[in-house]
């Protein structure tokens, strides 16, 4: 009898644990309120494809920290890396479209879908593109010591021409955005150079600092706080903190002036419209927040708040550009 009682107790305890665990799983689709504002009742998970410390990770963590001023909702940032950004995307699509899972993504995610020939019906059309939040301009970076010795963008191009393709440009990976940007610059200026992958922005900066690479194709952020100088920047006008760095337009290449990588948020198709509007409201508020502005300014990133179809158009043009350059490089069948 006693034994049976103990057993019963244990069983109920175990079941209790299951039930407890159940609550934190977003299995039950929250009934979408047809009218009225959306009110989150559970923590909202933002999944990102980069590890802690990556560009979108830092941006997302700061974003949710600021967002706490505008909402009582709790946000959890989850890093799901690997699989060429697809692991994260898949995780988002595997979870229910109840608004409690958001994909914090960047341009490289769209590149990866094209480069690895993943199903666009799933990995692009499967998303509602909520908001683009950042525009991170392309920047050509060299050593400060070279600048002080009289080197500038024209000097780089001249040097490239003289060395007949031996000038080394550091990019994170071949067949990625920074490689494309470098190719566009070479095409526009009519020179050849060698793009060498250095895995990440900081490591690329280190390669230029140490002299292993001559030029870094990066973002202004890579130069900030280091003995590096931005020789050209893709921006409508000169940027705060980088006043001595000319824009591509000033240098005579207006066609390069819009090259940038973007970051933004997306949710699975079928997510309640009320949730999307709620989140876009938060994006608009954070967009105006001084802390968000200051963080972006320090890293020469332009904060953005581009929603829905306008964002989707940017995604489409990213796909087009990626496909074009991958074909040019012979990396796509």
């Amino acid at each position: 009898m006693k034994r049976a009682l103990v057993l019963l107790l244990l069983v109920s305890l175990t079941v209790g644990v299951f039930a407890g665990g159940q609550q934190e799983q977003p299995a039950e689709a929250a009934p979408a309120a047809a009218e009225g504002p959306w009110v989150p009742t559970r923590p909202i998970t933002i999944i990102t494809h980069v590890g802690p410390g990556g560009g979108m990770d830092v941006a997302t963590r700061l974003f949710v920290d600021i967002a706490r001023e505008f909402t009582d909702a709790t946000f959890v940032v989850e890093n799901i890396t690997g699989g060429g950004t697809i692991n994260a995307s898949r995780a988002v699509l595997d979870r229910p479209a109840d608004g409690y899972t958001i994909f914090g993504m960047a341009m490289s995610n769209v590149n990866s879908v094209v480069a690895n020939e993943f199903d666009r019906g799933t990995f692009i059309d499967g998303y509602h593109w909520i908001a683009k939040i950042q525009r991170d301009p392309a920047a050509v970076i060299i050593r400060k010591s070279d600048r002080d010795a009289g080197m500038d963008f024209d000097g780089i191009i001249e040097d490239a021409r003289r060395r007949g393709g031996r000038q080394v440009w550091a990019v994170p990976v071949l067949g990625g955005n920074k490689h494309f940007e470098a190719l566009m610059i070479w095409q526009a200026t009519g020179v050849e150079a060698t793009a060498t992958p250095f895995e990440s922005g900081p490591l690329g900066a280190a390669a230029v600092l140490g002299g292993a690479a001559d030029v870094q194709m990066g973002n202004p952020f890579n130069a900030a706080g280091r003995d590096l100088w931005v020789a050209a920047i893709a921006s409508p006008e000169r940027m705060d903190g980088f006043e001595d760095s000319p824009t591509f337009a000033e240098l005579g290449f207006p066609e390069l002036n819009d090259e940038h990588i973007w970051r933004g948020f997306a949710v699975k198709q079928g997510t309640p419209r009320a949730m999307i509007e709620w989140f876009q409201g938060i994006v608009s508020q954070v967009h105006q927040h001084p802390r968000w502005r200051a963080f972006n300014a320090e890293n020469a990133i332009m904060p953005r708040a581009v929603f829905d179809d306008d964002f989707r158009k940017i995604v489409d043009s990213t796909m087009e550009k990626t496909e074009f350059w991958l074909r040019e490089l012979g990396m796509l069948d």
Binding site: G53, D57, V58, R226
Partner: peptide
């Protein structure tokens, strides 16, 4: 140099960056 040498250093870096500190 502000260059994270390991995965852990990258996380430490992000904590500084969020506070607007650039190593």
């Amino acid at each position: 140099l502000g260059i994270p040498g390991s995965a852990t250093a990258a996380v430490l870096l992000s904590s500084l960056l969020v506070h607007g500190l650039n190593p």
